[in-house]
Simulated scan of single mutants.
Amino acid sequence: MQSFKITPDLAEHEVWEQFVEPMVRMLPTNVKGIWNHAFTEMFNNAIDHSGSPHALVTIERTAASTSIHIDDEGVGIFKKLKQELDLESESHAIFELSKGKLTTDPKNHSGEGIFFTSRMLDLFTIMSGELYFSHRHDFSNDWLLDMGKPTSGTTVSMALNNHSSRTTRKVFDQYSGTDGDYGFNKTVIPVALAQYGEDALVSRSQAKRVLARVNLFERVVFDFEGVREIGQSFADQIFRVYASEHPGIELTCINASPAVDAMIRRAKSGKTDRPPERPVN
C-alpha cells in the first residue's frame, strides 16, 4: 500500500515503473501488459480528473490472481460526469460511461480508458457516492447497485488471473473495424443499466436516452441481458426510426428474451400501434 501526493509533476508511468511493475514483473508478458494499460489509465484519471490531494494504491497478489485498488478523495467520478456533462443523474453518468467515448476533457482524453480497461480484466468495479458499478468478464450483465450510504471520493478495484490468455490487442480487436482499421468503432450497450429504479423501458424518450452518442460508432450491439420486456414505442424508436435515419450504423442485439425479441421484430417490420390516418377528401 502506498499513498501518492497528486501534484502537477506526478506521472502515472513513473508510479507504474517504481511501485507497480516490480510487483507484477514475474507475471506472463500479456498479463503484465494488461496491468500496465489498466493501472496507468486509471491512475491518470485520478491525477487529471479527481481533484483529490492524494491517491492510495493497494496491490494484492496470490498464486492465482492479482488485484489493484486505487482510492482518491476527490469529488467522485459519477458526480463529476453528471455535473460537467449535464446528465440527468449519477446513474445516467454510469450508463453513458458504459458505452465508451465519454470524457469531460475531449482535448486531452479519448474517453476510451474505462471502457477498454474494464473489458481487459476479470473484474472491474467503481465505487463512488452512493453507487457501485461492476463489470465481470465471466458475466455478461453489468451491475449497478445503490448502496444507500454515500462514500467520499472514488475507489477503482481491478482483478486479473495471473495466467489469463487475454491480451490488450485481443480486446482492442473486439471493438475495432475490419480491414486493418483499429479505430474504436463498436460498442456494446448494457440496456439494463438504462432501467432506473422501477421504470420499465417503454417510451421513445427512454429510447433516445439509450441512443445518445450511438452516432459515434459504426456497430452498436444492444445487450438485453436482465431486461424482461420493452414497450412498442421504445423498440420502434431504436429499431425502425433510428435505424432508418442512420443506415450507416449497424444495430444488432443479444440476450433478448422472447418478449423483447418479438417487440424488436415487430418494430423492424414497420408495425406500430398508431391509428391509421383518415384519408383527405
Rank of each mutant, 00 (worst) to 15 (best):
L97A: 02
K82P: 01
A93C: 07
Y132V: 10
D146K: 10
A159G: 10
S165R: 10
L81F: 04
D138H: 14
Q83R: 06
T104H: 04
L85D: 00
D86R: 10
T151E: 14
L81S: 01
D146N: 15
M120Q: 12
H109C: 09
K149T: 14
N162V: 07
S110H: 13
V156M: 15
L123K: 12
M158W: 07
L145P: 04
M158E: 09
N161Y: 09
E112N: 14
F133Y: 15
L102K: 01
K101D: 05
G76S: 04
R169I: 10
S140T: 13
S118H: 08
S91I: 01
K170R: 12
Q174D: 08
M147N: 14
T167H: 04
F133E: 08
F78N: 02
Y132E: 13
M158A: 10
V171K: 01
G129L: 07
T104M: 03
D86C: 03
T154Q: 09
S134E: 15
L145R: 11
I77P: 00
D173Y: 02
M147Q: 15
G129H: 06
R169Q: 14
T168S: 11
D86P: 00
S89K: 03
E96Y: 06
Q174H: 05
H92Q: 08
N162A: 07
L121K: 10
S118Q: 07
R119H: 09
Q174V: 00
L102H: 01
R119K: 14
K101C: 06
K107I: 09
Q83P: 00
S118R: 09
L81W: 01
S140A: 12
T168K: 12
M120S: 04
F95E: 04
L145Q: 13
R169N: 13
H92V: 03
F78A: 04
L81I: 03
V156P: 07
S165F: 06
A159I: 07
M127H: 15
F124K: 12
S157K: 14
L131S: 06
P150H: 09
Y175S: 01
R169Y: 10
F78V: 03
E96N: 12
D173R: 10
L102P: 00
L121Y: 07
F116I: 09
M147T: 15
K82W: 01
S157A: 14
K101S: 06
L131K: 11
H92K: 06
R166T: 10
M158G: 05
G148V: 09
S164I: 05
E84H: 05
Y132N: 10
S118D: 08
F95C: 06
M127Q: 15
P106D: 11
S98Y: 01
L81D: 02
I77S: 08
T151P: 02
G113R: 03
T167C: 04
P150Y: 11
K80M: 11
T151H: 14
E84W: 01
D173P: 00
T155P: 00
N108H: 15
G76I: 01
L160I: 13
